[in-house]
Nucleic acid binder design. Structure first.
Length: 958
DNA sequence: AGCGTGTGGTAG
DNA sequence: ATCGCTACCACACGCT
């Protein structure tokens, strides 16, 4: 870090005058301040120290939720043995093999829901016995434990904790529970509190959360040792010729942990959310109408990553030695940040290390230290809050815009504030910030550029704005990037390499700009040229504008696949990951988009950047999920469908990006049923409202057609008429029975009127008689091929429904692969791994019918009948059975139905299974197959029930 | 005109 | 080796 070795004591006043003159030739009044003498100045030094002492108040030691000693409530009579006794059966999950991720995660999820449901019921019955002692805990259980993971899961959620199924890269887990130590684990969990399970059991016994430090699994000392031996172990066990790419199950975690851009994005989003919420709170408190801030400050660390990383290297003379931050010391790693000494050599951010080293051979490469960046950022924002500005708009971890409405004594006061702030941040973080300030965001940003490094720059002379702007390169304008610059350059300079400045643009009219860049960008750019910018940074004025609209995961590095199964597994993992994120952020989403990067034809197979994406075309496709959801299984299934629709050859896949949008806040947790039920119970209003989506008049009057009251049919007749499975109906909670009855009555009425219900995409699905929409929307002109693909595939699937895969002629297989749009290379793997895979899973095995997600409800009714019949047909003396791929798709569809609250449809399908099983055609020598089908039927009803209970509870709490 | 979808661009 | 993310805006195009 710069210890100001080269600074010379100077008078601040003097400095102001000088640099004003120097920087602008005195043509107009601006101000530049340097704080080279930051700490040398005794007054500053003292001030900073004082502030530092005070700082304890504002930055207390990190909060430790696990030390939160929540008072226990009620009594806990249920002994642990009782818990153990009542623990749901876990065997089936264990029988699953790990080959098929989708099935694996899907069943895992199902089991989870089932269990949670049981826990909820149990808790409801014994409500007083479970003090929510873990209410601040997010707990992940690793490996074999005693008591085992199921029991721990149960204990955790019964006591108000959140149970994590998956330890994400940026996991918010407060605790990791494990019983045994392996070197690998110590590495893996080095950032977590790893505690023995006894902490859970003892805490429950004591009815309060105990000090976790007494239960740590390994001591720090021990860590150190093992860490070293593990490094050797790791080097041996990881073959060097097999680098980690996206086929590796842990790839995502590994990738995100090390991705600077991932960190930047998540930090930014987190900050946004935090300040948005604070603004919401503030706007409730103060009713005063805010005027737009008169002063905008833009404050930003100087080469943040480089400066912070250098803090761990006290031997480095940060001011003079060129340093850069990147992964590794050579090759195609990006320089994410470099100090100004390095910039003198021409090194710049984003440059590859090999190039940077060419320019500056003595460049020192430092590692990332994401944790430290986060810490410094926290201090930074705390200091910003301390000066109590009108508003704070977080731009990034290391950068913020600040609005001040008025300052009594104009610039000198502002200067004072800035200097104090800079000092404090320097003392507290060891890094320098620069500040630009002006009367709008555009100019504040430009001022910041002039202020850097380690300085302050103001501009408050609207009359001189032309002078101020004239030599600014357009690239520096916010929102004007490389592409727009290029287009301007081509237009104005006919491609000459000179940078385009604002004065170059003076000849361009508003209309031309609009014609060139569109109404928004054109107008904005034109305004910028006059120094005009009406960007408002006051979040509290319009908090809803700042709420999150989408959640996405992009992976464009390390994507190299050979087989369809690998792609599918990866998509499942991405689905899992994104669902974890939805969960953590408290959202459900109704729209899913898959974007793929495909190697551009002619681009090298191995791009210059190691495992990089190279030159790519991007293709995207989106689908409505029917209802807002965060179901992993459903999302995984949809992603695989979308992948097949886009049809990128596996060998050419270079990037995958998944976006979920049309978000809705849904604050319940993973074990949502638990929390909701808990809340519901505490609120003591068990059934006031019903499933979301029942229209008001149905709720109140019982019919959508209040003027018409038909002679009511008997319930049984009604059920029969609509093919609803009676057993299933009876198994449902009372209120849902009632609801279905109403729905069926309504349908009877509807038949009389022959009226089709209105479309409503997300809600009121019980009132819709329409079957689910097909995936995506297919346009006749532009996407003819896709229509053909889908309809042909559907036809094909129907045609081949009863033909075992071996009997399919080559031509048919060829046709199928051709339809999927894959290259020859891809075709083989597709045929081998997808259409004719022969994996054994929970249910019997065998022929994958290639059932697709494209079917609609009416199709499914017929398909299901055929499917059941087909599964009983004999092949080598054994029934053909159910293929898990088909089953996955089927379950996916059921999920979709359930999310649409199409209870009736699900019950119909359950009934079709029953009817088919009872029909005499079946060969009755196989009970296995039959019991599989009964299991499936049970699963349908279970899914339905779980979902209804959750929905019911959800309504009650909101 | 306004909507839905796919695509492009930008910032840190 | 290497960790090329991600939220959001804007727009084109075709449809209603």
């Amino acid at each position: 870090m710069n210890k100001n070795s080269n600074s010379q004591p100077k008078s601040n006043e003097q400095e102001i005058g000088d640099s004003t003159f120097e920087a602008f030739n005195g043509t107009f009044s601006s101000t530049q301040f340097s704080n080279d003498n930051l700490v040398e100045d005794p007054s500053f030094d003292d001030l900073a120290k004082d502030e530092f002492m005070e700082c304890d108040d504002i930055s207390p030691p990190r909060k430790t939720p696990f030390l939160n000693d929540t008072k226990s409530q009620g009594t806990l009579d249920a002994s642990l043995t009782e818990l153990v006794d009542q623990q749901p059966d876990h065997k089936e999950t264990k029988e699953l093999k790990f080959g098929d991720y989708e099935t694996y995660f899907y069943h895992k999820k199902l089991k989870q829901q089932e269990k949670d449901d049981q826990y909820v019921q149990w808790r409801t019955k014994n409500s007083n016995q479970f003090p929510p002692i873990f209410s601040n805990c997010v707990i992940y259980v690793n490996g074999r434990t005693d008591p085992d993971i199921t029991q721990l899961h149960r204990m955790i959620i019964l006591h108000g904790g959140v149970f994590l199924n998956y330890l994400g890269a940026k996991s918010n887990a407060t605790h990791v529970i494990a019983s045994n130590i392996t070197p690998r684990k110590i590495i893996e969990f080095k950032n977590f509190k790893v505690i023995k399970p006894e902490w859970i059991t003892d805490s429950i016994k004591e009815k309060k959360i105990l000090d976790w430090t007494k239960y740590t699994l390994f001591s720090p000392q021990y860590d150190q040792k093992v860490l070293e031996s593990d490094r050797e172990l790791k080097e041996k066990s990881l073959p060097l010729n097999r680098p980690i790419d996206a086929t590796h199950p842990e790839f995502l975690k590994f990738f995100f942990e090390n991705s600077r851009l991932h960190h930047l994005s998540t930090w930014k989003a987190d900050l946004r959310e935090k300040f948005q919420q604070e603004a919401l709170r503030a706007s409730k408190v103060s009713q005063t109408l805010r005027t737009k801030p008169k002063i905008i400050m833009h404050i930003d660390f100087d080469c943040f990553f480089a400066a912070v990383s250098a803090l761990s290297h006290p031997d480095i003379d940060f001011a003079n030695e060129p340093i850069a931050v990147s992964h590794g010391g050579k090759g195609s790693s990006d320089v994410s940040s470099c100090n100004y000494a390095a910039r003198k050599f021409g090194v710049s951010n984003g440059m590859w290390v090999n190039r940077a080293l060419e320019l500056c051979p003595e460049l020192k490469i430092l590692d990332y230290d994401f944790k430290l960046y986060e810490e410094k950022s926290k201090i930074f924002y705390e200091e910003l809050t301390r000066i109590e500005p009108d508003c704070i708009f977080p731009v990034s971890v290391d950068e913020a815009l600040i609005g001040l409405s008025s300052i009594d004594d104009e610039e000198s006061t502002l200067l004072n504030i800035c200097e104090k702030l800079r000092n404090k941040i320097y003392v507290l973080t060891g890094c320098t910030v620069s500040i630009g300030a002006s009367y709008n965001v555009l100019l504040a940003k430009l001022c910041l550029r002039k202020a850097k490094p380690n300085g302050i720059f103001f501009f408050f002379q609207p009359n001189n704005v032309g002078n101020f702007l004239k030599n600014i390169p357009v690239k520096q304008l916010p929102g004007i990037g490389r592409k727009i610059e290029d287009r301007l350059s081509n237009h104005l300079n006919k491609g000459s390499k000179e940078t385009v400045t604002i004065s170059n643009l003076s000849s361009v009219s508003r209309d031309t700009m609009v014609k060139f860049f569109g109404i928004k960008t054109g107008t904005k750019l034109f305004g910028y040229c006059q120094g005009l910018d009406d960007t408002d940074i006051d979040i509290s004025k319009n908090p809803s504008k700042f709420i999150r609209k989408s959640i996405s995961i992009d992976v464009n590095w390390g994507i190299r696949f050979e087989k369809q199964t690998q792609v599918d597994e990866f998509l499942s993992r991405v689905a899992d990951h994104i669902c974890q994120r939805l969960l953590r952020l408290g959202f459900v989403g109704a729209r899913l988009m898959l974007k793929l990067a495909r190697r551009t034809k002619g681009a090298p197979i191995d791009p210059p950047k190691y495992l990089g994406m190279g030159l790519c075309d991007f293709l995207s496709k989106s689908t409505n999920l029917g209802a807002p959801t965060r179901e992993v299984g459903l999302i995984a299934t949809e992603l695989k469908s979308l992948y097949r629709i886009i049809g990128v050859a596996i060998a050419d896949l270079r990037g995958v990006s998944v976006t979920i949008s049309e978000l809705q806040k849904c604050d319940s947790d993973a074990t949502s049923a638990v929390d909701q039920k808990q809340l519901q119970f505490e609120a003591k209003k068990p059934k006031e409202k019903k499933v979301q989506g029942i229209e008001q008049n149905v709720l109140k009057g019982g019919s959508v057609f209040p003027h018409y009251s038909p002679a009511k049919e008997t319930l049984q007749k009604l059920l029969q008429k609509h093919l609803v499975d009676l057993d299933a109906f009876k198994a449902l909670p009372n209120e849902f029975q009632q609801e279905i009855k109403l729905e069926l009555e309504r349908r009877s009425v509807e038949q009389l009127f022959e009226k089709s219900p209105k479309k409503n995409r997300n809600r009121n699905c019980l009132l819709q008689n329409r079957s689910l929409k097909k995936i995506g929307k297919v346009r006749p002109e532009t996407q003819n091929k896709r229509i053909d693909l889908i309809s042909n595939q559907r036809t094909l699937n129907k045609l081949t429904l009863n033909i075992p895969i071996e009997n399919l002629g080559d031509s048919v297989i060829h046709q199928k692969t051709e339809l999927s749009g894959l290259t020859m290379e891809g075709q083989k793997t597709l045929v081998n791994s997808y259409w004719a895979s022969e994996k054994t899973k929970t249910f019997n095995k065998h022929y994958n019918l290639g059932i697709q997600t494209f079917y609609e409800f009416e199709d499914w009714k017929n398909l299901l009948k055929d499917w059941v019949r087909f599964s009983f047909e004999n092949e080598n003396e054994k029934p053909i059975g159910i293929h898990e791929n088909d089953l996955d798709v089927f379950y996916g569809f059921i999920h979709k139905l359930i999310l649409n609250e199409k209870i009736y449809e699900v019950l119909s399908l359950a009934d079709i299974i029953t009817c088919s099983l009872n029909s005499s055609e079946l060969v009755d020598n196989d009970t296995n197959n039959e019991s599989d089908w009964r299991k499936i039927r049970g699963e349908l009803l279970n899914m339905l029930k779980t979902n209804l209970v959750q929905k019911g509870a959800c309504i009650d709490t909101t």
